[in-house]
Design a protein around this nucleic acid. Structure first.
Ligand code: SF4
Ligand code: SF4
Lengths: 137, 137
DNA sequence: TCTATATTCCACCCGGAGGTAGTATATTGC
DNA sequence: GCAATATACTACCTCCGGGTGGAATATAGA
């Protein structure tokens, strides 16, 4: 019932980068500002880069920047890259190939929450997170 | 975003036991009927027994039975015994000590779902699961 | 050119969830 | 009493998410 640490880190970094101006952010500065293990974050940002969510610039004064418009980056995409969406699309009791005619005992109590979360992940964009009133990152 | 396998097994076993009459159920029969690894389920049922959710009878023709009324056993209690409720009470970005005045960027998009799930876990009882229309176990 | 700072890539460690094996112990029915 | 069948307990294994260390590579700037 919790995101992977990696998804949490990815979201926090992207929000932090988007909030503090548009230019390059080094892994070092992100690690220091957000309290995320340096080496771990390095590998994660490299993954986000290879998946096209961010752009990397090597060498001194290098770092990462967000290239795509914030309204175009949805939570579902971030989570899918980092940990995959399988566990959100499957369900609480782990059954797959569910239909309304053959539900598990939890269906009427759970499926609404599951659908709501999945819808939220697909509809919420980085732009909304940046504008949200939450200050803590 | 998924229950532990152990929680899934526990819920499925309890629902199965409650649905198929009130008497003793051996780990062997539960394992066969539900397709749950025998040894693994044995340890899990032993835990449920030590926590007072079920009662164990040793020896030939022994097994486990539910003693408390079904209306009194809530999902939250089962989940708490098996995997703990921490990850449901904390939140999606892993912050603790959250208040409305100092939210994280996800708060307005997530906290509603979190509260709904927690409320569901605390209010749903085994009796409701047994009566639900779901046939698949 | 040389150095400092940055990403990139490799191998490795740790802890916990899931699962297996074997054995000890309890108890029913013959 | 004895065999069959049940729970109880201990030790161990595998996989993976999280995390660390070190060296290779790229590059801006003195
Ligand atoms: S809650 Fe519904 S969708 Fe989820 S596993 Fe059960 S039957 Fe399938
Ligand atoms: S969503 Fe709200 S309750 Fe959850 S971690 Fe963020 S601020 Fe805290």
């Amino acid at each position: 019932m919790r995101l992977y640490k990696s998804s949490e880190y990815a979201i926090r970094c992207l929000v932090s980068m988007a909030r503090s101006g548009g230019d390059l952010h080094s892994v070092k500065s992100l690690s220091d500002n957000l309290g995320i293990p340096y080496k771990f974050l390095g590998r994660l940002m490299s993954l986000l880069g290879s998946e096209g969510l961010v752009e990397s610039v090597q060498g001194k004064a290098g770092g990462y920047r967000i290239v795509r418009p914030l309204e175009d980056i949805r939570l579902a995409e971030i989570v899918d890259i980092v940990e995959g969406l399988e566990s959100y699309e499957r369900c609480i009791l782990g059954f797959d190939r569910c239909d309304e005619k053959n539900p598990c005992p939890m269906h009427e109590f759970w499926s609404g929450h599951k659908d709501g979360i999945l819808e939220m992940l697909h509809s919420t964009t980085l732009a909304q997170l940046v504008q949200s009133e939450g200050k803590k990152i």
